[in-house]
Amino acid sequence: MKPTLPLTARAALLSFILFGATVLVWQLAIESSTGTAPNMDPELAALLGPQAKGQSAFPAPMAIFDELVRHVTDPFYDAGPNDKGIGIQLAYSIGRVALGFGAAALVAIPFGFVIGMSPLFYKALDPFFQLLKPISPLAWMPLALYTIKDSNSSAIFVIFICSLWPMLINTAFGVGAVRREYLNVAKTLELGPFRTAWKVILPAAAPTIVTGMRISIGIAWLVIVAAEMLVGGTGIGYFVWNEWNNLSITNVIAAILFIGFIGMVLDQLMGRVQAAVAYAD
């Protein structure tokens, strides 16, 4: 019998191989596309710059790696409105998500609680949620810009809207689905409405509520990039758009990797919270 590594070690090894292979193929593809372009109109060649010489504008992995190192080593420089360190841009985006998501949680959890406790409210409001939920949050942007008249607040409002529904719907559902048994125990112990909500309903519904929060923060992070592309000024979305206008594909890719990384961290944080409130039935 061959000795086998534990599953985690084998998975890590495979991840590493896949990563290495991707980078290698990428690098080879870029090198092979380098050559001389046959009979091209010189004016067009001048316009196209490096591409005219047959060089790809698409960066090689090493170029991106260098760019990442540059960003990580100097994330917070500020050289004017169009040239800020990626750390500053990410901080703007995270700040907006935190504000929009936080405000949404403050509204959705208490409101969802009330809806979940009342079958009447639940039934009466359900059609509205069903209608409002599938609307792309960006569709609210013009309305927000028109009423709030401030691009930064509008972006936060869009985050608020997109974070609201999953938390509201999950809270209402989780609260409504608390087992009758637990509520009967609360009644026989004469806990009263406030202690029942705090000691019984909230912990019983917490896993469902936190699942809603995890979905919300994921959506919020997806939406903030698009929202910042629209409103401009600051943030990682604006950074991506700005680098695209500068035709700096290297920076665009570097930003994409940072966006993925931050999204992963946010999701993992909510995963921690989820594990903390989970219980086995």
Binding site: Y182, N184, K187, T188, A206, A280, D281
Partner: peptide, 17 residues
């Protein structure tokens, strides 16, 4: 309901958390 009357439920009805 009253705290004068304690109930032992068929399912144990303990709070699992």
């Amino acid at each position: 309901p009253s705290l004068d009357r304690a109930v032992i439920f068929q399912g144990h009805a303990l709070m699992p958390w």
